[in-house]
Computed example of a mutant assay.
Amino acid sequence: MESKNPVFARSNEWKRNGYATFDAPSSGQRRPADASAHTLEDWYQKPSATAAQSRRMTLDDVVLRTASLFAVLLVGAGVGYLGVRNGMGFGLVIVPALVAMVLGIWAQVSKKVRPGVMFAYAALEGVFVGAISTFYAFLYDGIVQQAVLGTLAAFAGMLLAYKTGIIRNSPRFTKILLIAGVGYLVFGLVNLVASLAGFGSVYSGGGPLAILVSAFGVVLASLFLVLDFDYIEQGIRNGLPVKESWRAGFGLMVTLVWLYLEILRLIAILRGND
């Protein structure tokens, strides 16, 4: 079963037992066994793949792309921080978040790997993350540093659990995470609508329920990292072209930002209850 990280779920190459192809005929095209001599000649006349096109993705490639995307995200976060400090306020949170969502969907559904769209997403998502983090920092001193350390600790813990076999991906594991993820998304949308309509939010005022729900979000985001690790490993094993490392880095960035925001909210709730 494929990864339920939306960045990886659309691509067959990330599945177990998949394989990398370079301009191979699609299912609607004839294969070499039944192709005409003219078609074969056309294929052979095509230029040879370049070194970059023929090189397979490695873990180093994934790390490099992930780091480059996070570098842009951090620059965007700095812009968001300065914007809030200069009184730009609520619009600096909502507008970049909405545009980033559109760009993220584009990067996700596009068959072509689009690093430019991914960098634009990282920049705008960074503005949103920087702005929302600054709002929290005004209320709770040191909370951003705590959330960053918590995110790094969760990432390291999940990676260790995955590499040692304590937590492994499986069809059942993926199915459970998918159901939980969809349920959490629906809950979040309902909670947002209720809050905007004046009925209040589950997180308002803290309390045991707010802590429980927020902790569930942290655990869920952490477990999605296991899916990311597994399907990046499968992609490398299946010999994907190096360009797919952009999609891998993008997927990790999306999950880690989600995890950071969940941890940030949980810490705020816990400190608000003190």
Rank of each mutant, 00 (worst) to 15 (best):
R172W: 12
A120V: 04
Y140A: 06
V127S: 01
A137V: 01
L124D: 10
L139D: 13
L149T: 02
F173A: 08
V129A: 15
A122F: 03
S170N: 11
A122C: 06
T174I: 13
A154Y: 03
I167F: 15
A180P: 07
A131L: 07
Q146T: 09
E125Y: 09
Y121M: 07
A180W: 04
Q146C: 00
N169I: 03
V148F: 12
Q145W: 12
A120R: 03
G130H: 05
Q145I: 07
Y162T: 07
G130T: 02
G183V: 12
A131V: 08
F128T: 14
R168M: 09
A147C: 07
G181T: 09
G130M: 08
L152T: 02
G126A: 08
G157Q: 06
T164S: 15
I176L: 14
I143K: 03
F138D: 12
A156S: 14
V129Y: 01
T164C: 08
F155R: 00
K175I: 00
T174V: 12
V144G: 01
K163I: 05
I167R: 06
A153P: 05
A123I: 07
G183A: 12
G181K: 08
A147V: 05
G150R: 05
Q145Y: 06
L152K: 03
I143E: 07
V148W: 10
Y184V: 13
Y162D: 11
F155N: 00
F119E: 01
G126E: 05
